[in-house]
Amino acid sequence: MRLSVSHISKAYHGNMVLEDCSWSFDREGVHVLMGPNGSGKSTLLRICSLLEKPDRGGIAFFSGQERLEDDMALKRRMTLVLPQVGIFNSSVFDNAAFGLRIRGMARREVERRCSEMLSLARLADKRFQRAVTLSSGEKQRLGIARALVIEPEMLFLDEPTASIDEANTRIIEEIILEKRHGMSIIMTTHDRAQAERLADQLLALRNGRIAGED
């Protein structure tokens, strides 16, 4: 799946965050967006993941040459992991299974995919634990596992390691590197070294626009 961002602008309370921003994400792999606080990285991800609408301009998704309809089927081919993951007050496993259950997936397949992903996120031993009692780093790992079980074609990660320790950061980076094939991962980070470790394409967001490869 390919994403084309065309001349989008977005302002909050008169403060322009994105201005005439355009880019085409047409390769699989990890695209890392860097930029200072308030440069519009999170806003761009929220718009690209269809969580928000731009004030002007638009985005379009393509499969080959075919433009995809902006409907629930399209929304279910991608997902965004927010900086504060939004953990449900249920078990770790139920959190991981949420995206699959709402898609009506068979129990056995839910079990298989969640077990596999919780192992990758090193949360297999905590599958019955109440997820809200996990540490910040574990919650972040769960958020990424919960997103990956639905096998999205496009995964947006908004500052996935911003407020967690080194050990958790390392696990998350390993997950990203392992899952980069077969999907487009568009993530934001402040950490230059991390960006260089992960990026297949490193982009800079300046003055509300993607200024090109960094």
């Binding site: 997902t79 965004l80 927010l82 504060q84 993951v85 949420f98 995206g99 709402i102 997103a147």
Partner: peptide, 15 residues
């Protein structure tokens, strides 16, 4: 309920 829950469910493809 924290609005982040609504957003998390939405981003995971919930109607």
């Amino acid at each position: 309920v924290d609005p982040i829950i609504t957003q998390a469910a939405t981003t995971l493809g919930a109607t």
